[in-house]
Write a protein that binds this DNA or RNA. Structure first.
Length: 485
DNA sequence: CTCCACTTGGC
DNA sequence: CCAAGTGGA
């Protein structure tokens, strides 16, 4: 009797899971799935406690679904990626698995781990089969006419859409039920020590219900009711339904990008095209663009800027200022509301991610890596490629970045995207009583004495001038740069 | 080589 | 209207 092991990693679902489908294609084989808890590695990658909780809750659901198909889900704990290969081999030998199936991950530590697993298992005649599953188009397949990776989004997107059109979108059904449950599924732990969630259980359960059913439900509701207005409404953080909020589900693979794309296309075919649908698909494109960047330019996995010349920037390492930013006490209401949203619900609206990352890097001139790490520590949807891409975009160290001289004005962003101040009111209760106009700049002299809210921690205009001058100095160092590279 | 086009803006 | 180049065909 053949036995196949499906190794689940960032693909915690039963539908449209390539590795699972292929492993189950052999109807004779016994199938089991395994998920590894690797606390030391997670610590190193700054995985958020709320994200660990989200994964555990998802595994809870998935274990039930798989058990109903007579596929036992096993949970194994091992400290890190290094110890994981041996742990996997032990498991294979214990249960006599002849092959291991998994979907690829593309970060460098994950790639190295998978390579060592492949080598170790091959020595024992255990086959490993890996699959491109995480993207609509595998993150090394969208290339320029000259066979190089794109570094600009627009031409990338054009080719990416062509690739999708040419290859088609094939969504795999969940596997058929196996004859019998041949192993006892593991209990799913409720916690992993060292990963306390910073958000309340109530928020976790109401905003982020776990499992692929919940994800598909969210997707369906978004496509039914909101996607057509996506382009017009997505930039207003106070409108909770204007974005899909599927990023956490995509990050852990409770839903696949193919399912997302197809749901949008189905609406297009049923009701005609719309700018909202195009825009939302374009956002799926950004997700894959940054995955391609990570594969094509692995230095972004190693804390290095995409634009190598920007490595000479001397970022400030101001702990106190950074702390104020983290806590949402900068004195800039929208920035503070945004940081408190992250600190409260483990997620931040995309517009606000730009506002706060631009503020940290351009107003405070603090190292973008500090912000990148803080985001990872707090985000349910923490994903290296997307998070790094976003931060480097704001810091002007990335590909296709914001030009260094185009710096968001936090006050204008506030007035434009939270015009009535309602979002600020939600997360900065000290300001809730202020009128729609004052709330964006509450530091009016008359308010100072009785307002329990900090003064703006920096003069935006002066900060801009300093930052621009720092970037301009880069250009005056061409000789040193040439030598260093 | 030329020419096009360029997420998220500010003043 | 400014800004500064530059990736990509």
């Amino acid at each position: 009797m053949k036995k196949h092991l499906v190794w689940l990693r960032a693909d915690l679902r039963s539908i449209d899971n390539t590795a699972l489908s292929v492993a189950c294609a052999d109807l004779e084989a016994d199938i089991a799935a395994v998920y590894f808890i690797t606390p030391e590695q997670w610590q190193k990658h700054h995985v958020a406690g709320c994200r660990v909780d989200f994964e555990l809750r998802t595994l809870q659901q998935l274990s039930k679904q798989l058990a109903a198909l007579n596929i036992p889900l096993l949970i194994v704990e091992t400290p890190n990626f290094k110890s994981q290969a041996q742990a996997l081999l032990d498991l294979c030998q214990q249960h006599l698995f002849s092959a291991v199936y998994f979907n690829k991950q593309y970060e460098i530590n994950e790639l190295a781990r998978d390579e060592s697993v492949h080598q170790l298992l091959a020595q024992q005649q255990i086959d490993t089969f890996d699959f491109d599953d995480q993207c609509l188009v595998a993150p090394y397949k969208v290339l320029t006419g000259e066979g190089r990776f794109y570094s600009v989004f627009t031409p990338f997107k054009k080719t990416w859409l062509q690739c999708i059109y040419q290859q088609g979108v094939n969504i795999q059904a969940a596997p058929d039920k196996r004859p019998s449950l041949w192993l006892t599924p593991s209990d799913i732990p409720k916690h992993v020590t060292g990963f306390e969630s910073h958000i309340t259980e109530e928020i976790a359960h109401s905003l982020w219900p776990a499992g692929e059913e919940a994800a598909l439900d969210k997707l369906a509701r978004f496509c039914d009711e909101h996607i057509r207005n996506y382009k017009d409404k997505r930039d207003f953080p106070n409108l909770d339904d204007s974005t899909s909020r599927l990023s956490p589900y995509l990050a852990i693979g409770a839903i696949s990008p193919r399912q997302c794309y197809q749901a949008a296309i189905n609406k297009q075919q049923a009701y005609g095209s719309s700018a909202g649908i195009d825009q939302w698909i374009s956002e799926l494109g950004w997700r894959e663009f940054y995955k391609h960047i990570m594969v094509g330019f692995p230095r972004v996995c190693k804390h290095q800027p995409f634009r190598t010349d920007t490595k000479d920037l001397v970022w400030k390492h101001d702990e106190a200022a950074f702390q104020r930013w983290c806590e949402g006490k900068t004195g800039f209401p929208l920035v503070d509301a945004a940081m408190r949203q992250l600190n409260t619900i483990g997620w931040m609206h995309n517009r606000l991610r730009m506002v706060v990352s631009m503020f940290l890097t351009k107003d405070l001139f603090i190292d973008w890596r500090w912000g990148e790490q803080y985001f990872m520590e707090k985000l349910l949807d923490g994903d290296l490629s997307a998070n790094n891409g976003g931060w480097q975009w704001s810091a002007s160290t990335g590909n296709d970045s914001a030009p260094y001289f185009r710096i968001f004005n936090p006050l204008l962003q506030s007035q434009k995207f939270d015009p009535n101040g309602d979002f600020i009111r939600r997360y900065v209760p000290e300001l809730a009583h202020l009128d729609n106009k004052t709330i964006h700049q509450p530091h009016d002299k008359q308010q100072l004495l009785w307002l329990d809210y900090p003064l703006p921690m920096i003069d935006h205009k002066a900060a801009c001038a300093y930052t621009i001058s720092q970037f301009q100095q880069l250009k005056e160092l061409p000789i040193g740069r040439a030598v260093n590279e």
